[in-house]
Each structure stands twice: as C-alpha cells, then as structure tokens.
C-alpha cells in the first residue's frame, strides 16, 4: 500500500474572536476574547489517486482544514502529513508539490493577461525558464483557455477566471491538488465544465482533495466523502456507502394541512418510516421521511393523515442523496 497523499491526526484549530487592545495588554487585563474551534479533532487519510471531498455547510471548518494543509495556517494541535511531509517543519517543500486553488477569481491580476498571470506564477513556483512555456501551454490546454490566453483577465467571465485559477494550481505539475469550493458562484454549465477538468486530473494520476457544500458535486465527483460539521467529521465513506447508512431506499417529502396538534400524525408516520425532519409553518406541516418503499409508505401515510384529521397536499418521492445523509446525522439541512 502506498503512503497516503494527505494524513491528519486529531487536527485542531482554535481561533480567537475580537481584539485585545494594547491598552488591555498594558494593564494586564484578563483576556476576554472568545475562543472557538473551527476544526475540532479531524482525522483524515486521503489515498493517492482518489478524488476526496469534504462536504459540509458554510462555516463547518472545511476551508480552515484546507489552509492548514496548504501551510497558510498553523494548527493549534494535531499532526499533518502532506505527501509524506510535515508542513510545519518544511512548508516550502509542501508548497512546491501542492497545487492549490483556494479563493478563485479574486486571486488573479485582472490587468494582466492569462498568460502573463501564469508566467508570473510559474516563476514563483520555481518552474525552470526552459520549461515555463510548455508548462503554461499545458495548463492552459487543460482548462480550455488556450485561445483566450492573451486577453486581459478583466474581460473573462467568472467561470473562465475560476478555470484560470485552476490552471495556475497545475503549474508546479503537482501530484496533489486541493480545491476550496471550486464551483461556488458558477452557472451550471461552467460548474459541469470545471468538474470534468477535475476528473481529468484524477485520470492523470493526481490526487484531488476538494471542499464543497453542494451535495450533488460531492456525489458525482468524489470517490470518497467526509461529511464535516462544526469542525468534526461526522461520517466518511464512498457516496454510495454513505447513502446506504440511512437504511432507506427512498425519501418522501410530504406537505400536510393540519389545524390542531401535529404530534399524533407524526407518531403514526414514525411507525412506518424514519421521520428525518418536520417543520410546522402555521397550518402546514412539512415532513421528510426515509422509507424502504414509497409504494407502501405513501398510501399508508394518507390513511395516517386522515385518521389524525390532517390532509396531505403534496407528495414528492426522491432517491436518497447525501443531503439526506447529512440531515440524518445532524438534524439540519446543508444550506441552513
């Protein structure tokens, strides 16, 4: 078995909120800054050659984790190995082997052309001058920007800028590429396009570690997914295995009209399926239920509603997604 591309053990990052003024320091006042753990004990093992996804809502600790891997942040405790190297001890060696795309389109020089941007970063990546040209051409071709290489970046669309940022990450010919929310802010077409590029990276034998809060993205793209919430990994497996954990074949969304107490109807439904979520808004009750077969559950749900004095207004049957996995693990939706 080869060494993992990324390995972290009990990784913790604690941030302080607020400021401690010079005045407070001089008077030796107690430090009243609030501390919070953005990353709270993460163990990760990303194998060479896979696409690994960190899936979680905004603020779950995904970006902080990525920044620690990329040497931009020093962990509070825990250990990291990136391609077998400790980024705390040898940050420059890590950076030389790592292709990172952290903050997409804003991270480019808009008044330079794509090629000029890449020339600049090639020098920063210590690409030797006789290789620079070829490396840039290859990176541009990999993201489909060869024909627009001499345009100013300010004339690019958001999707093109995002792709250029990816091209930049490929300049050092890295065995490991990390991408932080690579498709955020892109239209569906541009997102699809970027995902195709990521798959090509795997085909070239590179390891890809990406974060996302789009469950479809994690599902379609990743070989394995770690679901992360409040700085902790709550589940880690292949998307298919994760979906199997909720022991349901299908998910049913119900919308019920109800006047009185909703406890009875929820109790009835709960006998036939797992009620993952219920939300009451005035006279409407929205229920998400995980069941083995919608064909059996839906008619029974109608009966249960009638007997509890409620009416079913809307039924939607969908296959299980990672969203449901997240819901069953945390009791919240990804976008909440």
């Amino acid at each position: 078995m080869t060494a993992p591309a990324v390995e972290t053990k009990d990784l913790v990052k604690v941030f302080e909120r607020g400021r401690r003024t010079i005045w407070q320091r001089l008077r030796r006042e107690p430090d009243r800054r609030e501390r919070f753990s953005a990353v709270d004990g993460i163990d990760l093992r990303v194998e060479t050659g896979e696409i690994f996804g960190l899936l979680g809502p905004n603020g779950a600790g995904k970006t902080t984790t990525m920044k620690m891997l990329a040497t931009l942040l020093i962990p509070t405790s825990g250990s990291i190995r990136v391609l077998g190297i400790d980024p705390l001890e040898r940050p420059r060696d890590v950076r030389a082997r790592l292709g990172a795309m952290l903050s997409g389109e804003r991270s480019l020089y808009w008044k330079l052309t794509a090629r000029e941007n890449l020339e600049y970063f090639a020098a920063l990546y210590h690409v030797s001058p006789n290789q620079t040209r070829a490396r840039i051409e290859r990176a541009l071709a990999a993201v489909n920007l060869s024909d627009r290489a001499d345009d100013y970046v300010e004339r690019y669309s958001t999707g093109m800028r995002q792709r250029l940022a990816l091209a930049r990450a490929l300049l050092p010919d890295p065995p490991l590429v990390i991408l932080d929310e690579p498709t955020v802010g892109l239209d569906p077409q541009a997102s699809r396009d970027l995902r195709d590029r990521v798959r090509e990276l795997r085909a070239q034998g590179r390891t890809v570690l990406l974060t996302t809060h789009y469950m479809e993205e994690a599902d379609q793209l990743c070989d394995r997914v770690a679901i992360i919430d409040h700085g902790r990994i709550v589940a880690l497996d292949t998307p298919a295995a994760l979906k199997r954990t909720i022991r349901a074949e299908e998910v049913v969304h119900l919308e019920l009209g109800i006047d009185g107490d909703d406890r009875t109807v929820l109790e009835h439904l709960g006998r036939m399926a797992t009620v993952a979520r219920s939300e009451r808004t005035n006279g409407t009750l929205a229920v998400t239920a995980h069941c083995a077969s919608a064909r059996d559950f839906v008619p029974a749900a109608f009966d249960a509603a009638r007997s509890a004095g409620a009416t079913i207004r809307h039924v939607e049957v969908v296959p299980v997604t990672l969203e449901d996995v997240f819901l069953s693990l945390t009791g919240r939706a990804l976008r909440e």
């Binding site: 990329a70 040497t71 931009l72 420059r92 060696d93 950076r95 030389a96 790592l98 990172a100 952290l102 903050s103 804003r106 991270s107 480019l108 020089y109 970063f121 020098a123 920063l124 990546y125 210590h126 940022a165 930049r168 050092p172």
Partner: peptide, 14 residues
C-alpha cells in the same frame, strides 16, 4: 486586500 497575496504565498517562493 485584492486577494492575490494568498496564491502567491502558496508557492514555494520564500
């Protein structure tokens, strides 16, 4: 402030 420092600091350049 522009956002270009972060990618520069991700490179092996001192």
């Amino acid at each position: 402030d522009m956002g270009t420092l972060e990618p520069s600091w991700l490179t092996p350049t001192s």
